[in-house]
């Protein structure tokens, strides 16, 4: 398990992210946050930690994607 940030460092992160969201602007804030998440996940290097973080941040509401089945009968093509 990685070391958690000290509270004063977390406070700095809080403000850094707030400023970055404002800097990105309303149009791009969601994209910015997505990029931030995947970059942080890459740097953290621990899948379980990331899964835990997703669970915490979504209040445990969101689980793995599962597409609903439905019949198909379409034409075929063939380019990779």
């Amino acid at each position: 398990m990685n070391k958690s940030l000290e509270f004063d460092e977390l406070e700095q992160v809080y403000e850094l992210i707030a400023d970055a969201i404002d800097c990105a602007g309303q149009e791009s804030e969601v994209l910015f946050l997505s990029k931030l998440c995947i970059t942080l996940a890459h740097r953290v290097g621990d899948l379980q930690l990331v899964e835990d973080a997703i669970h915490i941040a979504s209040d445990g509401q969101c689980t793995a994607h599962k597409a609903a089945p439905c019949p198909g009968n379409e034409k075929r093509g063939g380019t990779p």
Partner: peptide
């Protein structure tokens, strides 16, 4: 092929996910 007559004559159906996404080639 994808619209197999044999499959139809045997009363079989393909199962699974039909992902959205149409392409023009």
């Amino acid at each position: 092929g994808a619209r197999s007559t044999v499959r139809e004559l045997l009363g079989l159906r393909l199962q699974g996910d039909n992902l959205p996404g149409n392409y023009v080639i």
